[in-house]
Design a protein around this nucleic acid. Structure first.
Lengths: 189, 189
DNA sequence: TTCGCTTTTTGCCAAATGGCAAGTGGTTTC
DNA sequence: GAAACCACTTGCCATTTGGCAAAAAGCGAA
């Protein structure tokens, strides 16, 4: 929880009373590896902040192939904003790749924070835009680089993860097939 | 300007006085095809909203190749948030692909709107997250699809643009070489 | 340990893409 | 109009990736 508070204080000032209110609304959610945080069809009703672990966001394309859209790591938010803001069903699955600890706020509590804490909107705006900018950067770099380089970049960002998750998750994230990724791995060794 | 006002009213309510203030701060910027809205090294000091035209965001990678990161079309924001928020030099170039009309707010005016209009933070948060989510979606689909499909998708989103901009801009956006894109074009005919 | 299941690797070949350079076509400039 | 320039296309060939299926490896249950 301290990590979370110090994280948000980077984006704006809060007095102790406000921090207490935030802490009071925060719920610690523990997920085990492979648990789902959100499934397609559900409405994303929680705003989450990952303090430990890595999650994966995926969807099924029109060929019924599962595509990994991105990974979410520590000190990042986990929420389907489209679903959360507009209260429409999510298209995405969000699944824990490792055991995770997530600080979550129920939507009504989140709304209360927005209504009560004058600077909360500004803080959230910065947190959200930082998180989304990071996603744009990471996905853009996959488009711009060859698959081998993207794989190496992934290894840097998520050391130890590559060998603990199904190859297919990673391959679709990189935009290649599982067998191609297997060959890339072989060539790197 | 009416387009811009009705756009922002989708994201929150504003009274007439607030709308007048926003209108007063707004400046209409006209760019000709190929003009730069922002160049690398500059600090992004304006928050822009495209009412007409299409722009392109690019950067140079470590091989000094120019990479098109994404295109910005009408009813979307144009601002390097990283640079604007943190007042650091931008890495990106933003260039008009067609003649453009952009409603811009100087940073100090923008800050005044944030300080004066209570709901402005919330509105901006929604506009920004919508814009960034769209970028994530578009770039993700390039990773997930083959180049031909991505090119066809681009043609749908930006009809008439593909033949009016240098092929190299589009090729790097799609993550392929110029000659590959040329061949893809040939095969489609 | 063995069986059964899942995941990963590999072989084979086809298709897509890259790298390079030459050719083509159009436009500008003088 | 000729020359120079620029963007795009094409040819040639190497490399990468895909599609498919079989083999190998990993793993848990009995």
């Amino acid at each position: 929880m301290e990590d979370f508070i110090s994280y948000i204080l980077q984006f704006g000032n809060l007095n102790q009373q406000q921090i207490d209110l935030i802490s009071k609304k925060a719920i610690l959610l523990v997920l085990k590896k492979d648990d789902f945080y959100l499934e397609a069809g559900q409405i994303s009703k929680r705003f989450g902040f990952v303090t430990d672990g890595i999650l994966r966001v995926s969807y099924f394309n029109n060929k019924s192939e599962e595509i990994t859209k991105y990974f979410i790591d520590e000190n990042n938010i986990v929420v389907d904003l489209e679903s959360f803001d507009n209260e429409i069903p999510s298209i995405a699955y969000v699944q824990a790749m490792t055991d995770c600890k997530i600080i979550v706020f129920a939507k009504k509590d989140w709304q209360e924070l927005l209504d009560t804490i004058i600077s909360w909107d500004a803080i959230v705006r910065k947190i959200v835009s930082k998180a989304l900018l990071q996603k744009v950067e990471r996905i853009s770099s996959i488009v711009a680089q060859d698959a081998t380089t993207s794989y190496l970049t992934f290894l840097e960002k998520f050391p130890n993860l590559a060998n603990r998750i199904p190859l297919s998750y990673l391959a679709s994230y990189l935009g290649i097939t599982q067998s191609s990724l297997s060959r890339i791995r072989k060539n790197i060794k």
